[in-house]
């Protein structure tokens, strides 16, 4: 092959990437598709296309492309709704579809995107949108935030091998939160709304609710526990690794238990058995 023919081939390949990028944009971007209908030249101006490729693009059946794009949008909606089913149920079908479509129009999925990244991105978008929307109940963004944590925890569990953690010994030692465990506070008691086939009859009660989520090895369904304030502070204190004594010291000003060290010892044992805490080796 001569240098000139190699060059021709290279240019042809490069141009085809632009042509395919145009098609991909056309399939996945509703606004771009409308622009292409109104002014093909304006849509084409974003890409380096040769006259043959431009001619091919002008011959596309745009009704067929709309139908294909519609099927992609439906798949995307289904995928996004499946990420946060409890939130979607609470939001209602029409509003959920609008939210999915708006997210999709802003968020261009990149090849190889991990499910957890899509979950976090969509969750953040939905939570922020609902928080700013006066017409939506205040508890709804809290439910979204809680469900994102639940699903993240589930993804972590599904990836974990079915090995048991070493139980906490009653003696001295340093403990930390087990991988993937989440301790968080919510402004409403949204826990009853998670993983129920139908939304509960009553709206979530206002009031700070502390939740503990523990990944279950090999399962997408984490263990969820409601905590009291002291238990939440206790678990929060361990972080990346602390001894019981250090935690007891940190909690002295908060808890007025007569035998704080003993109470902490049994709580640590309980949480370790539940898989929330692990002894640091």
């Amino acid at each position: 092959m001569t240098r000139r023919s190699k060059e021709r081939q290279r240019i042809s390949g490069t141009a085809m990437i632009e042509y395919q990028s145009f098609l991909a944009r056309l399939y996945t971007d509703d606004v771009f598709r409308r622009l292409n209908r109104i002014s093909p030249a304006a849509a084409e101006s974003f890409f380096r296309l040769n006259h043959v490729e431009t001619a091919c693009l002008r011959r596309l059946d745009l009704d067929e492309i709309d139908a294909f794009a519609g099927s992609l949008a439906a798949r995307s909606r289904e995928q996004l709704r499946g990420l946060l089913p409890a939130s979607v149920r609470a939001l209602g079908d029409a509003a959920a579809d609008r939210a999915c479509d708006r997210f999709r129009s802003l968020h261009r999925s990149a090849p190889g995107e991990r499910p957890i990244d899509l979950l976090r991105g969509f969750g953040r978008f939905l939570e922020e949108s609902l928080r700013a929307d006066d017409s939506q109940p205040e508890w709804l963004p809290e439910l979204v935030r809680c469900e994102v944590a639940l699903r993240e925890c589930g993804l972590q569990g599904a990836r974990s091998p079915a090995t048991s953690h070493a139980l906490a010994a009653p003696g001295d030692g340093v403990f930390r939160l087990a991988d993937g465990v989440r301790v968080a506070a919510y402004a409403f008691d949204v826990l009853p709304w998670l993983d129920k086939p139908e939304p509960p009859a009553r709206e979530p009660a206002r009031g700070v609710t502390h939740a503990l989520m523990i990944p279950q090895a090999g399962s997408r369904h984490p263990k969820v526990m409601k905590l009291n304030l002291l238990a939440a502070r206790l678990l929060g204190s361990f972080g990346h690794g602390k001894s019981r004594e250090a935690v007891a010291h940190a909690l002295e000003g908060v808890a007025a238990a007569p035998d704080l060290a003993h109470a902490i010892r049994s709580a640590v044992q309980r949480f370790a058995m539940a898989g929330a805490l692990v002894a640091v080796q």
């Binding site: 261009r108 999925s109 090849p111 190889g112 995107e113």
Partner: peptide
């Protein structure tokens, strides 16, 4: 099929045109 372009995951399988350049790719 074409299922992605640089930076864009189409989300499904889309058809391609059959010619010598696409064959080479």
């Amino acid at each position: 099929a074409l299922s992605s372009a640089p930076g864009i995951d189409i989300g499904h399988l889309s058809p391609i045109a059959y010619h010598r350049t696409s064959l080479r790719h």
